[in-house]
Every structure is written in structure tokens, then in C-alpha cells.
Write a protein that binds this DNA or RNA. Structure first.
Lengths: 340, 340
DNA sequence: ATTTAGCACTCTACTTGATGGAGTGCTAGG
DNA sequence: CCTAGCACTCCATCAAGTAGAGTGCTAAAT
């Protein structure tokens, strides 16, 4: 592989570029970091590193810029370095302690925290709720014809929707009690199978009960759409590489749709603690010049979600990795505490 | 005032500038619009309009650009012009019919619709909830130590928060029933005054009841913060006048805080159907080069909210006014239908 | 009295060419 | 194997020049 000096030079070169966003020259390196050799030697090494594919030269008389491979080497070498100060970690914890713990709000704010400390775009994905079960149903009449359905699941989500129903004689409280009795603890598929053959004591309730059951099922099924929480899409412009408006526009449009994003992250974060994908390592065209740092968090024993950030390949990886890891851990802790 | 020809020329000049975002020349006007006079005549008129303050010339050999006064004159003249096609209106209605009618979601999506059709930043403000009353309280135990409180108000909002409580012997259902009994139909101030001197049948309930009551009050009081819904902050970059990143950054930062925004809009929209504030007509420094189009919508007999858009002074006013008006009406209709 | 053709004038945006400097690669000597 | 030195390359910047867009004004036309 690389000898010690090449490695050291590559490291400081990447570090310097991450700091300044300017191609780094041999001179700058020797005067800023104590390399113990002259700029000429560094030049030779840089040329060598370039031929190995770690660096790239925009033009003949310019400094060097890391390639994706160069970043990769750098990232693999710094995975243990602390990127956050103690104070920052404390501040994050403080933020977490102030959040409400309802699932949606929690993730929304988590994404905000993450984008706030990194200045990159942050994403939080709720776990797949396919296996969650109904904990409580609430029917609130808003008008003679409208009922607000509030569903609470064992994972702590609150799902709600207003539906219009035909007025019926009985008290809606009866229906609420009945539905709670029958549906509590059931998952998607079970509710689905109940839909047609629910037996009711009172024939007058059959019609409205069925209507509500359909609505409830619909709420549970459609709720996968609300799994993506984005934040920091406006602060991303602080990064110099995103001065090209059109490029950013494309990126943001892609993100807003969110579908692919879920894949980018979910495929990734399963395996390792914090996963880093640099530039062309991403399978998706639209983020070939971005890096993704992702991690999964634990919701409970059986299910996990994903969160991460998206930024330029010239990213402060040490900080980004620490931030994602720490936020992910903190989130897991909050969630675990909630269920104990 | 202005004679017929000046008026016509000013109108097409503004129109052309809105379309192209380029200073308009006398030639362009005569060849594009049938003015029936030569470019020289138009030039004279333009010079005259400039001296009256309706137009402005960036430099001697450039075309003309409308001033805020020019825009104002234009806007006052087109207030009846239809800015949306029938198809677009139908599309909007379709979108509305698909939205869930819970207040928060409704406003979030309304803002999205508005920014989607105008490509400007859209804002929706929920009505002040100061006078809303509690309709229903839901206590859902998530763990032995955590309770999810869900509040539903007569205006159809769903407020929720998780709180930790000391475990206590009694069934939480009792407490829920009790709180519902005592608090239903009460407003902020009444609940507040109940806080200390609530009398309970069971002394064992006093402690947890008081804790929950405090939490409930806190939820109701803090919920003013959640009144601002922003959308379209990323699509604003499609407008050529926002190519200056720094300026946009400032604008967005201001908007994210949202406080002032509420004033900008709320002061405005009370009086007229759709209110337009152009550039320097805005009292706030930070949006001196933006225009605001706002309207209020009806929640019920006693309260109303506000929605609107913020864009460059070079705005498609006809379209913007129509869009804001139509969306506002649609929203009011949905809300009224909900309560009948 | 108003409109218009014609023209000189102004200002900008763009191109071109020249210059300085940053940074490299290479060579020869330590 | 390292390094001092130097020639070379390429970029960024600036000045000067040019083309063109658009105006304002004047004098003729209606």
C-alpha cells in the first residue's frame, strides 16, 4: 500500500482541501504542517499519489484535489477521530431532552438538529411501520357529518384524519369502545382481514363501522408516505460547492420526492454503525458529486430507522461521522427510555 | 392622472418586464404590442412616465424597469383579470379534496399548493387559537412511566405531547374520564384557573392529575408557536432575481423565524379580499425588495387565519392575486363544510 | 401641435491581449 | 534519496478596444 510518508501527505492534503476548498499546493502543505521535508519532495509524492488515483490536478499549474478514492482512504483512516467537542455533544443532548417524544415531531426535530450542527442536508427516515399494531383509537365528532379519527400505535405514532360519515342514531362513543375492543393490538394484515367479516352486536352499527374500518385501514396503509423528514435544504447554500443554482435545484427536487433517498440510506446503514458513501460510490446519478453519511437507530427490538446527511464530497467527514453517530445514539436512547 | 396612452404604455411595459425580467425598450414594446405609434413616441412617453416616478432607468442607454409605484398602478388596474385557467382551478380543487382536514395538515398542504402553483414562497398562518376550547382529551400510556397526551380542540386541531409521570396505582382510564368531564368545553384561561383548585374524588389522583393538568396547559399555551407553515423555500431559486445567494439566505433566515412574518400578513389581510404590498410598501426592512400577496380565510364565525405568498417585486401579480384568492376561498369552503 | 425619422451620444457587455504569479516538473548537485 | 533552482505552463486579472443596444434630441412631416 502506501508508505508512511505518502499516507501522511495524503491525509494533510485532504484535510487542507476540506478546510479551504482550494486546490492544495506543495508549498502550502510544508509551511502549514510540519512535514520535515521540502516542497519539492512533497511535489514528487503528490505526483505519485496522483498517478495512483488518490489525487487529481485540475490543470497543469494548479494544486491537487482529492478524488473519491482519496477521500475514501482518508475516511477509512479517521473513523475514530472525535469530530465533536464535549460541549457540542452536551448541547445536542440538551436539544433532545427538550423535544416532545411523539414519533413524527421527534424525527422532524432530529433532522433539524443534525442539519443544524453539520450545515448539510439532513434526512431522518421513520422505521417501516408495517409491523406496528394499534394501541388506541379515538373518534371525535367534529360536526354531525365529520369524525376525526386519531390512531395511536404501539410505536408511539399519532395518525389522524378527518372523514365524513353518514349520521347514525347511536352514540359514537359506543362505536369507539367497540372498535377499540376489537382492534387493539392488531396489525395491518389482521385489520385488513377483519374488514369484511366483522360481527357486531347491533345491526345499526354495521354500516358506519364498516366505513370507519375502511378509513382506519386506509390511514394505516398510506402512512408509509410520511416517513421522510428533510431539513437544512436552505442552509446548504452556505457550502461553496453549491453555488451553481441549477445543480442544487436538481438535487433538491430529487430530495423532495424522497423516494430514492429512502433507498440510498436504507440499503446503506443496515450493516455498519456509521456508513459513508463518497461521490461515485453512490449508485444514483443525481448524487454522484455528493457524499452520504448515514446510520441506523434502534426503535425497539424488532425495528430500526435510518438517519443521515447529504453534503458535498468535500465534507468535514470527521465531524459528519461523529455527528451522525452521536445523534443516532441519542435518538435510540430517547426511544429506548420511552419504552422501558 | 395619466392619459389613456400613457396608461396603456405603462401597462404593457410592466407586463413585458414581468415576463422577461429584462429592462424593456421602446422598440420591443412597439414590435410586440400593437401600440399604433412609433418607437420615438413611446420613448417620449417612457421618459415622461419616468419623470412621474412610475419607471426607472438603470443607466442611460438601458430600457426601463417599473418602480414600486409603477407596479402599484399596474396592480390596481388589473385586480379583476383572471390569472388562473379553469383547469388550474379544477386542479387546485382536486388537491384540496384529497387533503386530510386536520388543521395542521390542512394548512401545511395549503401552503404547498400555493407555492406549487406560484413558484413563490407560500405562508399559511393558523388562526389564533386563543379562544379555542378543549373538545377531547386522550391519555395513552406508552410505557409505565410515559403518557401520550392528545388534545383535540373545537377548531379541529390535534395537539400532542409525551410526558413522563410517576406511576400510580389507579387505572389511567379513570383519570382520562375525569379530566374529560372537568375540562371539556373550557378555554385557556378557565383551565389555567382550575389548575390549583381542582377537587378530586380520590386523593390518590391528586398528584398525577395536577401533573397532567400542568402538561395540558403547557401544550395549549405553547401552541401559538406552531402557527406558521412555510413552503416553497427551495423553489424560490427558480426566480432570476434570487440569484444572489446571500440575499436569499437573509430572507430565508428571516422567514424561518416566522415571527415578523405573522405581522406582515396579519396586519394586512384583514381589510380587503386580497391585499398586495409592493416592495417599499412593506414596513419591514428585510423584504423591501419583495412583494407580499395575502388574504384571510374564514375558520368559523369568530376567527380567521391568513395566507399569502412572498416573491420578487417583479411578480406575476395577476396570477398571484388569483391564486391567493382562489386558494383562500377554497380553504374557507373546506373549513365551513367541515363544521356544518 | 403632435408624431416620426434620423442621428449623435452613452453606457454596457463582451472580446482581446498583455502581465504577474502560483505552482508544477525536471535536473543537477548535496 | 532529498532538495535547491529554474524553466515552463496555465490561470486570473486588468486594460483597452469594439459592437450593440437604447436613448434623447432635433428637425422635418403630418
Amino acid at each position: 500500500m502506501l508508505d508512511a510518508r505518502k499516507k501522511a501527505i495524503l491525509f494533510v492534503a485532504v484535510q487542507e482541501y476540506i478546510l479551504t476548498a482550494e486546490p492544495v499546493s506543495s508549498q502550502k502543505l510544508v509551511e502549514k504542517y510540519q512535514l520535515g521535508v521540502s516542497s519539492a519532495t512533497v511535489r514528487n509524492e503528490l505526483a505519485s499519489l496522483e498517478s495512483m488515483g488518490y489525487l487529481h490536478q485540475p490543470h497543469t499549474s494548479a494544486g491537487r484535489v482529492p478524488t473519491d478514492i482519496g477521500y475514501r482512504y482518508y475516511v477509512d483512516g479517521i473513523s475514530d477521530k472525535p469530530g465533536l467537542t464535549n460541549q457540542e455533544e452536551k448541547a445536542i443532548l440538551r436539544l433532545f431532552s427538550a423535544i416532545d417524544i411523539e414519533m413524527g415531531d421527534l424525527l422532524r426535530e432530529t433532522a433539524q438538529i443534525l442539519s443544524g450542527i453539520t450545515n448539510y442536508i439532513a434526512v431522518a427516515l421513520a422505521p417501516s411501520y408495517k409491523r406496528s399494531t394499534l394501541k388506541h383509537i379515538d373518534l371525535v365528532p367534529l360536526s354531525p357529518k365529520h369524525v376525526l379519527i386519531v390512531l395511536i400505535t404501539d410505536k408511539g405514532q399519532v395518525l389522524k384524519r378527518t372523514v365524513s360519515v353518514e349520521p347514525f342514531g347511536k352514540d359514537i362513543g359506543d362505536l369507539e369502545r367497540l372498535l377499540n375492543e376489537r382492534l387493539q393490538g392488531l396489525g395491518r394484515s389482521e385489520i385488513s382481514s377483519l374488514r369484511e367479516n366483522i360481527d357486531l352486536p347491533d345491526p345499526e352499527l354495521v354500516h358506519p363501522a364498516r366505513a370507519l374500518l375502511n378509513a382506519i385501514l386506509d390511514i394505516i396503509m398510506s402512512e408509509d408516505k410520511e416517513r421522510v423528514f428533510l431539513s437544512g435544504t436552505t442552509s446548504i447554500f452556505k457550502q461553496p460547492e453549491f453555488d451553481d443554482l441549477e445543480r442544487v435545484q436538481i438535487l433538491l427536487d430529487t430530495l423532495e420526492h424522497g423516494y430514492r433517498l429512502m433507498q440510498w440510506l436504507e440499503d446503506s446503514a443496515r450493516t455498519q454503525k456509521v456508513l459513508v458513501r463518497i461521490g461515485s460510490e453512490n449508485s444514483d446519478e443525481d448524487i454522484r458529486d455528493c457524499s452520504v453519511v448515514a446510520s441506523s437507530y434502534q426503535l425497539d427490538d424488532e425495528s430500526e430507522g435510518t438517519l443521515g446527511i447529504i453534503g458535498p464530497t468535500r465534507m468535514n467527514y470527521a465531524r459528519a461521522i461523529s455527528a451522525v453517530g452521536f445523534v443516532s445514539d441519542s435518538l435510540s436512547k430517547v426511544l429506548i427510555e420511552l419504552r422501558h
